[in-house]
Amino acid sequence: MKPVLLIAQRDISAYLHGITGYIILAAILFLDGVFFNAFALGSGPRYSHEVLEQFFYFSSGTTMIASILISMRAIAEEASTGTDVLLRTSPASEGQVVLGKYLASMAVLALLTLLTLYMPMMILVNGHVSLAHIATGYLGLMLLGSATTAIGVFGSSLFKSQMAAAILSGVMVVTLLLLWLVSQLVDPPFADIFAAAALFDKHFSPFQEGRLLTSGLVYYASLTWGFLTLTTAVLHGRRWQ
C-alpha cells in the first residue's frame, strides 16, 4: 500500500503546487455558485429540500466536468514528460500506480466538493433540510465523481496529450449519460439494460433526493473498478508490447 500512498501524495502535491489545479478549482466553484444562485434558489418560492435537490442536480454536472479536468493529467503528463520511467522502473506494480493516480484525483475532487459545502449550509441556516439528505447527496456526488474520475484516469492512460485524454473521457461520460435517452428509444429488454447502464438518471437521482440505494452504490463502484482495471491493463500491455 505504501507505493500507492506515495504516488498519490506526490500527485496531490503537484496539483497544489501548479496553477492549473487552482484554475480548475476556481472555475468549478464559480460555476457551482452561479448555478446555485440562478437555478437552485430560483426566482420564485421553493421548499428547502427542492433547493437542495436542485443544488445536487447541478453539482453533479460540475463534478463530472471537474473529475475529467482533474484526472486528465494523471498518467498523460507522466508519459509526455518522460517521468513514467521513474514509475516503470520502481517496485510499484501497474495496479498500484493506477490506484495512486486515482486516489490523488479523488482527493482533489473531494477538496473541491468540500468547498461547495457552504451552499447546503446556507439552505440549512435559512430553511429546513436534514443533514442525512445533505450527507447522502454528497455521497452520491463522490460516487459519481469516482466513476468519472476512473474514466478520466483511463482516458489519461491512452494519450500523452492531456487535451486528447480529456476529450476522449468526456465523450465516454456523455455516451454513458445518453444511454438514458437511448433507453427510451428501444424496446424491452434493451430499454431496461440501457437505463440500468446510464450514468445519471436511475442511479444519481435517488442520492439527489436524499435516498440511499444499494443499486447506486454497486453501479458506481463497479464502474470505478472496471475502468481502473482497464487502465491497469493498458499500462501492463504497454510494458510488454
Partner: peptide, 8 residues
C-alpha cells in the same frame, strides 16, 4: 533525458 519532477 533525465526524468525528474521539476517542481520538487
Amino acid at each position: 533525458d533525465p526524468p525528474l519532477y521539476r517542481d520538487m
